[in-house]
């Protein structure tokens, strides 16, 4: 199975903008792979809160890299700023695009009409009004209802794009991947190694780490681990004060404070799932 991920490159600042996924089916697929991401769009009927949000789903760089490495994602690269290109492609294809959207709307309207008419009919039936003697009254009623339906037709703003496929693509995939690797650094290795142990990882700064790790889907499980930024296993010192503070925080929020780094270089002949990182956890003793 493959998910398409659009990547926006900002060449001027040499940056890769966060990767977003708009298609709900893709999001489902990703979740099955243990990539949960963070939803960031307003959820329409509950638009005054931030706990439940809708598409787009925002991915971490590590997640995108992992999907790419495993072959689960196809990358489509676009150069920012894109507005000029978008405008010109829209102009070129305006008739086609307009027809597609008009058609989609018509289909939607038609099914809305059908559904609402059917609902209305059932309501009348339940009230026992669909008898021969009530024919005139019900006919008028149905007519009125049709008017109501017309004026309450819902126009959808689609989530996924019909235009992006027309835009000019960039071919710098290798550059993008190598930039992602260099941005993530060793954090990608520990991400991958934890992922291979079937953890689900999410951003963890508010809990005092780079990631938090769930033993499964976050909808069902609490996260157990707060994973720190990777360090050089052999050379980096660990600041004792940070270790104390971090492990104390771990005790408070009931997550283990975990630190790790790359212990061995990955052998080319090794099987994919072998771990090159080593992890340690620290917790306050005597808290009971």
């Amino acid at each position: 199975m493959s998910v398409t991920i659009h990547i926006l490159l900002n060449k001027a600042a040499d940056e890769i903008v966060s990767q977003l996924v708009f298609d709900v089916e893709d999001i489902k697929k990703l979740r099955k792979l243990g990539i949960c991401g963070i939803l960031m769009g307003t959820l329409p009927p509950a638009s005054q809160q931030n706990v439940f949000l809708s598409v787009p789903l925002r991915l971490m760089m590590e997640e995108t890299l992992w999907l790419y490495e495993k072959g689960y994602a196809k990358l489509v690269l676009l150069n920012s700023p894109i507005d000029a290109n978008l405008a010109s492609k829209v102009h070129e294809n305006s008739v086609k695009l307009s027809n597609i959207s008009v058609e989609a709307n018509q289909k939607s309207f038609e099914s809305q009409r059908q559904y609402k008419t059917e609902q209305h009919r059932r309501k009348l039936e339940a009230l026992g009004l669909l008898t021969a003697e009530n024919n005139d009254k019900t006919a008028k009623d149905i007519q009125n209802n049709q008017k109501l339906i017309e004026s309450s037709l819902f126009v959808e703003i689609p989530n996924s794009s019909r235009i992006l496929s027309l835009l000019d693509k960039s071919t710098d995939e290798k550059d993008v991947i190598s930039k992602l690797y260099s941005n993530c650094g060793q954090n990608y290795h520990i991400f991958r190694d934890l992922k291979n142990q079937n953890y689900v990882l999410a951003p963890g700064a508010r809990f005092g780490g780079r990631f938090i790790a769930y033993p499964g889907d976050p909808l069902r499980f609490h996260s157990h681990l707060t994973v720190q930024n990777a360090i050089d296993y052999y050379n980096d010192p660990i600041d004792l004060l940070s270790l104390i503070g971090g492990s104390r925080l771990g005790t408070t929020v009931k997550k283990l404070w975990v630190i790790g780094g790359i212990k061995s270089e990955k052998d080319e002949t090794q099987v994919d799932n072998s771990s090159t990182s080593s992890f340690y956890s620290v917790e306050w003793a005597g808290f009971g």
Binding site: A205, R210, N229, R248, L249
Partner: peptide, 12 residues
């Protein structure tokens, strides 16, 4: 320092 550090001490 790294943001993670500030966030940790602030929470503790």
């Amino acid at each position: 320092r790294d943001y993670t550090w500030y966030s940790t001490v602030a929470r503790v």
